[in-house]
C-alpha cells in the first residue's frame, strides 16, 4: 500500500479491488461447520457473486483470507505460509467463535489458539458457526475497511495508542516457534 492514494493508478486499483474481492478459505482446524456455511454463501440463496465476491483456490490470487477454526499446532506454520503468499494489501477474516477465541477447542493440547495468535486479523465474525448472511456481512464490511484503509494510506490508523501486541510487522513471532 504505497504511493499516493489519489493517483489515477491507485484509484483504479482501489476501484477494481473493492468491486471484486477474491476470497480464499483456509481451514486451520475447524469442525467443517464454518466451511460449509461459507460454501453455502456461494450457492443460489445467498449468492455472494452479486457483490463481486469470488472464491479462489490459490492464496496468490486472493485479497481476503477467511480462516475457519482454532489453529492446530500442525496447521499454524501452514497458515502463516498461506498468509505470506497473499499479495498486499491483504485482509484476514477470522470466522466463528473458534477463529476469534478458540471456542470449545480453547486449551486443547493440539490447539495453538485463535487465528490472531498466528497472523494479524482484520475482522472477526461471531457465531458457532456464523450464518451465511453474517459471513457476507463481514466480507462487505471488510470492503468498507479496505476503502477506509486506502484513503488513510495503510492500516496504521486503526492501531490504538500503546497497542504493541499482535503487531502486523511481526506476525511470525508465534508461528515461527510452532514451525516444524
Amino acid at each position: 500500500m504505497t504511493g499516493d492514494p489519489q493517483s489515477l493508478s491507485q484509484r483504479l486499483a482501489t476501484w477494481a479491488r473493492v468491486k471484486s474481492p477474491w476470497v480464499t478459505v483456509f481451514n486451520s482446524g475447524a469442525c467443517n461447520a464454518c466451511d460449509i456455511e461459507i460454501i453455502a454463501c456461494l450457492m443460489p440463496r445467498f449468492d455472494v457473486e452479486r457483490f463481486g465476491i469470488l472464491a479462489k483456490g490459490s492464496p496468490r490470487h486472493a485479497d481476503i483470507l477467511i480462516v475457519t477454526g482454532a489453529v492446530t499446532r500442525k496447521q499454524a506454520s501452514r497458515l502463516l505460509r498461506v498468509w505470506e503468499q497473499i499479495p498486499e494489501p491483504k485482509y484476514v477474516i477470522a470466522c466463528g467463535a473458534c477463529g476469534a477465541g478458540g471456542g470449545v477447542f480453547q486449551g486443547l493440547y493440539h490447539v495453538v489458539g485463535d487465528v490472531g495468535t498466528v497472523i494479524p486479523v482484520d475482522m472477526y465474525v461471531a457465531g458457532c458457526p456464523p450464518r451465511p448472511d453474517e459471513i457476507i456481512n463481514a466480507v462487505v464490511a471488510c470492503l468498507n475497511l479496505m476503502k477506509e484503509d486506502l484513503a488513510q494510506g495503510g492500516k496504521e490508523w486503526r492501531r490504538k495508542a500503546g497497542d504493541t501486541d499482535r503487531k502486523e510487522t511481526t506476525p511470525g513471532t508465534v508461528a515461527k516457534d510452532v514451525r516444524v
Binding site: A30, T72, K74, Q75, F105, L108, H110, V111
Partner: peptide
C-alpha cells in the same frame, strides 16, 4: 490426515 487433530477425545 492429522492436520485437523485437536485432541477432542482427551478433552
Amino acid at each position: 490426515l492429522s492436520y485437523n487433530h485437536r485432541g477432542i477425545e482427551k478433552a
